[in-house]
């Protein structure tokens, strides 16, 4: 065996090993969290932990339900804002904008995606929270006295503030993925539609989006996944007071990642407290896995139907 083939064999094995190591990190994280969370699971049912909102560590009650719903609540608000913004921006850039506009918009979007979460958090505290407190909340909550607007939280630190900050954070990621996906739609599809006398908008809506739909769904799931795991910015603006069930976009919300970041390492004298926080981390991990699995499921089915 000559030296080239030996090198080749070494390269293959070592890279395979590295790849395996990276992949197994996912399993190790899951297993490690489970191992450390076992004490709190002993003697309690999963359902009790997942669906109960009773969080009284001193009394040994560790219901994560309120935090899980808080996560969903803030993420849902973020997605309601971010999905239309991202989709319309991506559609403009890929279908209408000239090449020059696209060329300078791309780095701008990348910069937005690269800004540190703390910066978004500060911006949220300085701009979004006061806006919610002084305008959105008094305006909407006094007029629309029903779900999801009625609230008595006048601080501005709210699920809405968290959602807005999260939306601004995930928009660049989704824009960039969606634009990428729209650009994979063959130009011939646009030509075929335009040649029939369709307008740009008809072509975009009925032909391009139809083709790009699975990818757009994937981009939304990616954004959702990112938003639900984001910690710092939400922690800073969402108020972080526990709600059993979210009742208003103006109430504070306490998502899982914020709980973990806020409390881990503190109050360790409380029995089972650290195990409960690691359980929260495990739940967050499993939720991420679940979102991704559901996302891929949708994607694969759409692709299959497309033929």
């Amino acid at each position: 065996m000559d030296i080239r083939q030996i090198k080749d064999a070494i390269a293959r094995r070592s890279m395979g090993l590295v790849a395996l190591g990276v992949m197994s990190a996912a399993f190790l994280v899951g297993f490690g969290l489970y191992w450390r969370a076992r004490p709190v699971l002993a003697g309690r049912r999963w359902t009790e932990i997942l669906f109960s909102a009773a969080w009284h560590p001193a009394r040994g009650e560790f219901g994560l339900g309120g935090f899980i719903l808080g996560s969903f609540w803030v993420t849902a608000i973020a997605m309601v804002i971010a999905v239309p913004l991202s989709l319309l921006t991506a559609l403009y850039l890929s279908e209408y904008a000239s090449r020059r506009t696209r060329e300078w918009s791309r780095p701008v979007v990348d910069v937005l995606a690269g800004i540190s979460p703390v910066v978004y958090g500060v911006w949220g505290m300085l701009v979004v929270v006061p806006l919610v407190r002084d305008y959105a909340m008094p305006f909407l909550s006094s007029r629309l006295k029903f779900f999801p607007f009625a609230s008595d939280n006048f601080t501005g630190f709210s699920a809405l503030a968290g959602g807005v900050v999260l939306a601004v954070m995930v928009v660049p990621i989704m824009v960039s993925v969606m634009e990428e996906i729209l650009r994979t739609v063959p130009p011939e599809i646009r030509e075929a539609s335009l040649a029939l006398g369709a307008t740009r908008w008809q072509t975009t809506k009925k032909a391009v989006l139809k083709k790009a739909w699975p990818g757009v769904v994937a981009a939304i799931i990616l954004g959702f996944s990112r938003a639900s795991g984001e910690t710092m910015a939400v922690l800073m603006v969402a108020g972080c007071a526990l709600q059993a069930v979210p009742k208003s976009i103006f109430d504070p919300a306490y998502p899982l990642p914020a709980l973990i970041a806020n409390t881990y390492g503190e109050m360790m004298s409380v029995p089972l407290y650290d195990a409960a926080i690691l359980l929260a981390a495990l739940v967050l991990f499993l939720l991420t896995v679940l979102f991704n699995a559901v996302g891929w499921g949708i994607l694969l089915r759409l692709e299959k139907r497309e033929g």
Partner: peptide
């Protein structure tokens, strides 16, 4: 609309046979 164009390679739209023909009508 006045000029029907047939391409070098057929460019079917990502939808059913029926919808392909109905596409232009709907538009």
């Amino acid at each position: 609309k006045k000029m029907g164009l047939l391409f070098q390679r057929p460019q079917v739209l990502p939808m059913s046979i029926f919808e392909n023909v109905a596409y232009g009508l709907r538009i």
